[in-house]
Amino acid sequence: MSEHASAELIARYAAGDDLPGDRLWAVESHLETCELCRLRLADVAPPQVTALTAAVWAELEPTGAPVRRRRRFAQWATPSFLPWLAMTAFVVLAALFVDGVLPVDALSSAVLLIAPIVPVLGVAAAWSRAMDPAYELVVSTPRAGLQLVLRRTFAVLVVVLPVLLLGGWVVGASPAYWLLPCLGVTSVTLALGGVIGVRRAAVATAASWAVLVIGPAVVLGGVPGVLTPGAAPVWAAVLVGGAAAVFFRSAAYARL
């Protein structure tokens, strides 16, 4: 259409005036194809028409609450994640208690020693059949794969890191000591998970950590070398290496 209908014509059409047949036909066929003129028509529509259209639109509004918090939550963690949350807090509390009971010089802080494997335990829990009642349903869906693994790992870290920060602050273990090891061990767990399954990988890493780091630290005392700030570049390399391995083997996570 090269030309729009005049304001006067639209007003007369909206008011239901007796327009000559040819003009009526022209304005209607123009309105069918021209959004601008339909909007102008809507502006001058009499109240009984606007009331009717408003009522129809109100009927068409979707009913019910579209945002469901429970389902939103489940996109990041299984609902059975909550008991695990309590357990994590308990583990950190227990470590705090150990720190409080034992003399400060006797061994390095228990919170510091367990910090790197606390998220790993969470990752293991997020993928265990026992912790997720809908496990069998979830593993056959397209989203079960790296995306869901990363979502759940992220949820674990979001919960665990603040708890560890708080616990570390109470006993005076700076994040500089444990934050990179914590992320490094998590990324190694995920990388290993692509090969042997996330849950098994988490159990294996946690056990190795207990044997190789916690054990010697308890026996010999002092802060283990791997948890000193000097080891940070090594942990950064481990983190990047683990992340790269996860990225390049992303298809392997389809079966968990």
Binding site: P79, P133, A134, L137
Partner: peptide, 11 residues
């Protein structure tokens, strides 16, 4: 539909 399927009870 698995034989024994679990679900989230509060859903």
């Amino acid at each position: 539909l698995p034989q024994d399927f679990g679900y989230y009870k509060r859903f």
